[in-house]
């Protein structure tokens, strides 16, 4: 009876059961991190250390990419808008696209590849060199000591990085549109202020970046914690972190946008 059809079906079943098992394991891991996150706040120095590695060291790439994204938006937006005689609206275009979409999404993608991959590799290597087992042997809970501070550092850093990205991008757009191309500065700012809403645009962008921060850090930490304790396993887990969290960010962005901006 072990013919081709049975083998194919068995293969599909294997993949599905594996996927469900892993998803359940990931959810239990995420829940455990939340439950045991007390020490991340009681010993806040641990979290501060991780904010340095996740947030401060990502600053350069976030600021530079934000500046360039904003400058490109300024150039492209000006090129299109001046055909319709409304070059002043370039401020609106730059601010809305950065605050609503590009700020949270692009900084989350950069955060996943800059900080998420580092977290996965670090925890995976800790596991491969049996440091996590050693902690466990000394009755130190590795989840509250190692995973928790990293998780909260990611959740705290992400909205700040996204806000810096957006602010830097708007500055880049200002540089190109006003300083270089000669759009009127007053019209640039006032049209921007007239169309960007504090609650609907800025706050929704912040909510998005917090959700992305949770998703990216949780995926990175789980992949690291779950990595096979070999060199190959750690490298595979790092790759999976970047791929999975990028896909998660993009699909979550669609879902959040569909909810937030449906009525506008």
């Amino acid at each position: 009876m072990d013919n081709f059809v049975v083998r194919a079906l068995r293969h599909i079943g294997h993949i599905v059961i594996d996927g469900v098992w892993r998803l359940g394991y990931a959810s239990r891991f995420f829940f455990l991190v939340l439950v045991r996150s007390g020490p991340s706040f009681r010993r806040f120095a641990l979290t501060v250390r991780e904010i340095y590695f996740a947030g401060v060291l990502s600053l350069i790439i976030i600021l530079v990419s934000g500046l360039f994204v904003g400058m490109v938006l300024g150039l492209q937006g000006y090129d299109t808008l001046q055909r319709y005689g409304s070059a002043e609206a370039v401020g609106t275009l730059v601010a809305l696209s950065l605050v609503r979409e590009l700020g949270p999404v692009v900084s989350a993608l950069l955060f996943a590849s800059r900080a998420g991959s580092a977290m996965t590799a670090e925890i995976g290597l800790m596991k491969a060199t049996e440091q996590i087992t050693a902690l466990d042997m000394m009755a130190v809970d590795p989840i509250s000591r190692i995973v928790g501070p990293r998780f909260w550092a990611g959740v705290i850093s992400m909205p700040l990085l996204a806000a810096l990205f957006s602010a830097m991008g708007i500055f880049g757009g200002y540089l190109i549109a006003v300083v270089l191309l000669g759009v009127d500065a007053g019209a640039f700012w006032s049209q921007m202020q007239a169309s960007v809403d504090l609650r609907n645009d800025v706050m929704n962008g912040v909510i998005k970046s917090i959700v992305f921060g949770i998703a990216v850090t949780a995926i990175a930490l789980f992949e690291g914690y779950d990595a096979p304790p070999t060199a190959e396993g750690v490298s595979g887990a790092t790759t999976r972190t970047v791929v999975t969290s990028s896909l998660a960010v993009l699909s979550l962005d669609f879902v959040l946008t569909a909810f937030m901006f449906r009525g506008l």
């Binding site: 947030g55 601010a95 909205p159 202020q193 800025v202």
Partner: peptide, 17 residues
């Protein structure tokens, strides 16, 4: 880092929106 992030949020809230 945290202070500059908060300043960026404040700029977005006050100058942009």
């Amino acid at each position: 880092f945290v202070a500059s992030g908060l300043v960026a949020l404040l700029v977005l809230a006050l100058k942009v929106s």
